[in-house]
Amino acid sequence: MIWVAAALLFWGMAWALNAWLARSRHSGLRAVRIAVPVIFGLTILVVWELLVRGLNVPLVILPPPTMIAATFGGNLAILWEDFVQTFLKGALSGYLIGCGAAVALAILIDRSPFLQKGLLPVGNFIAALPIIGTAPILVMWFGFDWQSKAAVVVVMVFFPMLVNTVQGLAASSAMQRDLMATYSASYWQTLLKLRLPAAMPFIFNGLKIASTLALIGAIVAEFFGSPVRGMGFRISTSVGQLALDMVWAEITVAALAGTLFYGTVALVERGVTFWHPSQRK
């Protein structure tokens, strides 16, 4: 009971601290803006730990964070192997192939308004479908190893990327294109110097959406069959063994990988599209 009371007390104190920080004069400071969500996150971890201990929650339902951290630290080799298999081999290669192919196709169909008018609604439609369902088919075709995971990722990222790139290539205004025409710029010069740079905010929007999809695709595809390593494989087998601390450790890896992946794309975006209003301070 003491643990539970401590959890409630800690929650109340942390929330009061956050409320005070948010209302204080310094709430605009960068340090405070970072501190408040960090305090909130830590509070959740502490309350989780205290409640699990206080209420004697069985380990097969919810392990406490300290135990997850211990499992994480104790199995770094396995987690790294899974990370390499699922993220570097499956997700990343599929991401590069899928996004590259989508941008290339978008540039190709960009010359034909007819194809654009046809592909854009179809692509939009397909982007909303549960494409993850193709995973069993692709696993059947490409085998259990990472190639099939990469194939799932290619299919998943292709259409969102295609739609965004086609929209981006149409983003430069008629005035700007006319200017290029008065310079007597060739098609490729206009593409490289005006239209692709103007499309970058859209392309990066697609790249960011695709970064999340890529990881999801690679993990879920492993539920349909995989070699004896990989994040999805580890999650599904550890769930079967009721080793939930391992599942949570793997989820932590997935969360870190997803956030870092997204963050990297966002960082590159800031460098490439520094001129765009959304990037201005």
């Binding site: 999801i216 993990i219 539920f223 599904s236 769930v239 793997e250 989820i251 997935a254 997803g258």
Partner: peptide, 9 residues
């Protein structure tokens, strides 16, 4: 940015 779907199982 997190593959939430991983917690489904």
């Amino acid at each position: 940015t997190i593959p939430i779907l991983a917690i489904a199982p």
